[in-house]
């Protein structure tokens, strides 16, 4: 599903590579926590899985696509199979919850019929049917992240990338988001989640990959956050 092989990423002007000879295999349906100190390369790795950036060396295959060789014009279609959420939600401030979700479908050319059905359904799934017509400024952080999650999964992606999705949320709210991610995972979506949240990683005991200074220092099933 995701196959990262001997990937090195050096940013121009940086003294050491952000990723250093990293190899990871992630199978369909897995839920993987990516942990490590700030600057250890978690976001860099995620960006490459999304083909927002290319590795300096090594190869990445996602959903059967060779991301190093894929032509630029095929990238948009490739990305339709991936959902992404971020720490900062990235909602459009002048659109309601429902419009934010609908927007992501409109821009990939989905029919109006599909959109009017899919949007309320996914908002119900994330528990926001009541807030469909609220603007992001009228929603709490947790609610905004639910909207972002709804947007990420409305097109039923095979893979969900979550870069510190609970980074801005209090523990209780984070708990709710994690519940949701877990349900999405049980429905068959592969999840790769970068996090600093020790409590969550320790509680769910999934596969944990730990990065340190761009190197993998641990890759364990059913593990915890670690000592650092």
């Amino acid at each position: 599903m995701i196959s990262i092989s001997q990937v090195t990423k050096s940013y121009r002007g940086a003294p050491r590579p952000a990723l250093d000879n990293v190899s990871i295999e992630i199978d369909k349906g897995e839920f993987v926590f990516l942990v490590g100190a700030s600057g250890s390369g978690k976001s860099s790795l995620m960006r490459m899985v999304l083909r927002e950036d290319l590795p300096t060396a090594g190869s990445i295959h996602v959903l059967g696509e060779n991301l190093v060789g894929i032509p630029n014009r095929r990238v948009p279609h490739f990305r339709r199979n991936l959902g992404v959420v971020f720490q900062d939600f990235r909602l459009l401030p002048n659109k309601t919850a429902a419009q934010n979700v609908a927007f992501s479908l409109e821009v990939i050319g989905k029919s109006r019929g599909f959109i009017t059905e899919a949007v309320p359904e996914v908002l119900r799934l994330v528990g926001l049917e009541e807030k469909a017509n609220s603007l992001p400024s009228e929603l709490s952080g947790g609610e905004q992240q639910r909207v972002a999650l709804a947007r990420a999964i409305v097109n039923k992606p095979a893979i969900l990338l979550a870069d510190e999705p609970t980074g801005n949320l209090d523990p209780n709210t984070s708990e709710g988001i994690m519940d949701l991610l877990n349900r999405i995972n049980l429905a068959g979506t592969t999840i790769l989640m970068a996090t600093h949240d020790r409590g969550i990683v320790d509680k769910y005991r999934k596969r944990v990959i730990e990065l340190s200074q761009g190197k993998i220092v641990r890759d364990e099933q059913g593990s915890g956050y670690g000592n650092r």
């Binding site: 630029n72 279609h77 990305r79 991936l82 992404v84 459009l92 990939i108």
Partner: peptide, 13 residues
């Protein structure tokens, strides 16, 4: 912002 989200969700160029 809109452009960023469009690229993220895979809108064609």
């Amino acid at each position: 912002r809109e452009i960023g989200i469009m690229r993220l969700v895979g809108a064609s160029n």
